[in-house]
Write a protein that binds this DNA or RNA. Structure first.
Lengths: 340, 340
DNA sequence: CGCCATTTTTACATCGTTGGAACAACGTTG
DNA sequence: CAACGTTGTTCCAACGATGTAAAAATGGCG
């Protein structure tokens, strides 16, 4: 059924290897034969058997991308970019979902044998240092969006502390004084970094860090943001601004504020994180930290690709793609559009 | 580096095939040997070389999922469910993005050789009947979300006509009389079906179908919805309700309505399509058609799996998973929450 | 024309796994 | 005890591609 090199060879009247040579662009093939082979290739519609080729080459041609859930917009967007970047380098991407649980993340990380994939991009949520297989043992791995875990791997992530700092400083510059945070979670590496940036910015502004304004969130879904915001609004002294650790939390927060009949940003300013497409269209649109997702995807692919191709055993590299603060209605809006 | 069957065999003091038999659960292996082999397996941490196994078996163990873009929430959510469903049957999923262009869809569809993947779930946007490779020739393919193209393949999609009909009927039942549609697009199969349901529902209600109320959309992104809504709002007689062909268009429409200072649903009621997570949290939340996405994913995986495993050559099957109308604030809300 | 150097092609082994057949060990039965 | 069926194991070939090395064709030169 499927066309093999042998079929092409028979048709062209040459050996299998000569066909292989043509396919792989080997220089020394008589023009006459090359022409015949190429015709045969075209006539049969030959396609290399990737499995066999990789068996021989000791590669699989696949990379794994481990994320919590594709249904979370940030990961959907990131995965799309990763797939595109990978394709440019000739890799196919396999996606594994972990729901952000440590158990499943651990299971995934050490099921990534060298046979299934040649390398992996790992976006952990709850993984700890000891959970990783010995680097050097398994396949090349690149850590995404995570700078807190202490393990000898390449990493790609924006400067979370700096980003959080600039988000909160923005709120400070608008004159806000009771600035809350939603998404505090000691088990998440990035959350701790964002908390650090948050408290640093407050301190730098001469504001005090108030425990009751630091709302935890287990999952970073819209519902969690809504619930956290509700709690903040029923404080004796509610906040006048909130920094949410991702856009989904912020979207949830927007809803709770609206349900209370308060206005964004007049009564409460809100900043998100991730600049997902959704944040540009929420009502009001969200001011948010915008990591350069395309740069993240590129860098990550570059790193695994380098580790796989290159035989070099250099020490782990750390790439920090740029980010920016996207200022929109939720902090700078003239008024909540629906509000008047 | 990697452990092979041979290594395990040497350690256990048996032949390679015996180890293979143990690994594959072959019944007749002497308990003593089985024990030895199992110990050796554990000691070496053996993992089968998927490539080699599949080379031998003539399978790759991979399925492809072709979608326009993962960054579109519906596809992100669907892809997540497909991956989960596939995993349960032992398949890994490879995602291909086409940006919804016919060129790339065609390229993808016929690059899906039998070597890379054993089957494919295809969610076309612009593909036409002739673009498909001869069914029977290539790998099993299942068509997703598309009932208009005439080709001999298994299909999974909700009843789009019925769904659109019920969305519009809902608006009619609320007393709306000038009901617009956003997302008309003759090149999209599903769009035509939804138009059919839309016009049928209007006719059934004794309302006339007004051309100027049928807004086209090239892409189904938020920005397109916003633009289309702007045009509708500047009609001499603007609509009092809008049926959007997906949630993103609806979210864009919400924004344009808000920017005009009008209220949803009081001035204009809006219905979306897909029930993406975003739609439950928009302000106001969106009434939307909710296809059972998990059922879609399950059915699709079941179908390819059946085609691949089974040697039967049955005629194409068509599965219609259920859908429901999720009624929320954008049609039934007491008032736009931020509005008061 | 014979020989060597270069270009071009081929045969063969190999990657790790599994199907099939051959083979060995075993207890049972006539 | 020979013949037999059952159970367990091993050997060999094969999946499709490519690296290696050897063989064949070609060309140049003395």
């Amino acid at each position: 059924m499927a066309v093999t090199l042998k079929d092409v060879a028979t048709l062209a009247g040459v050996s299998v290897k000569t066909v292989s040579n043509v396919v792989n662009g080997y220089a020394f093939v008589k023009p006459e034969n090359r022409r015949r082979v190429e015709e045969a290739l075209a006539a049969t519609g030959y396609r290399p058997n990737v499995g066999a080729r990789n068996l021989r080459r000791g590669r699989t041609g696949f990379l794994a991308l481990m994320v919590p859930e594709l249904s979370i917009p940030y990961f959907g967007e990131l995965a799309g970019l990763v797939i595109t970047a990978a394709q440019r380098r000739g890799w196919s991407v396999l996606i594994e979902q972990t729901q952000g649980t440590r158990t499943r993340e651990r299971a995934t990380v050490d099921s990534l044998g060298p046979h299934l994939v040649d390398g992996a991009l790992v976006h952990p949520e709850a993984l700890e240092a000891g959970d990783f297989p010995d680097p050097g043992m398994g396949i090349p791995m690149v850590l995404l969006g995570e700078h807190a875990v202490d393990v000898e791997l390449d990493r790609v992530a924006i400067d979370n502390v700096q980003a959080a700092h600039s988000a909160v400083s923005h709120l400070v510059s608008l004159g806000r004084r009771r600035i809350a945070a939603i998404g505090v979670n000691p088990r998440r590496g990035t959350a701790s970094l964002r908390v650090a940036g948050y408290t640093a910015a407050l301190t730098d502004a001469g504001l005090s860090v108030v425990d009751s304004l630091m709302e935890p969130a287990d999952k970073y879904h819209r519902a969690n943001g809504a619930a956290a915001m509700k709690r903040l609004l029923s404080l004796p002294e509610p906040p006048d601004a909130v920094f949410c650790f991702n856009d989904l939390l912020a979207v949830g927060a927007l809803r709770s504020v609206a349900e209370r009949g308060l206005r964004v940003p007049e009564d409460i300013a809100i900043v998100g994180f991730d600049n997902t497409e959704e944040s540009a269209f929420s009502l009001p649109s969200l001011t948010t930290i915008s990591p350069d997702k395309a740069a993240i995807a590129e860098a990550a692919i570059d790193l695994v690709n380098g580790r796989i191709i290159g035989t070099e055993n250099a020490s782990p590299r750390e790439v920090q793609p740029p980010f920016s603060l996207e200022i929109r209605e939720s902090t700078a809006g003239v008024s909540s559009p629906a509000g008047r």
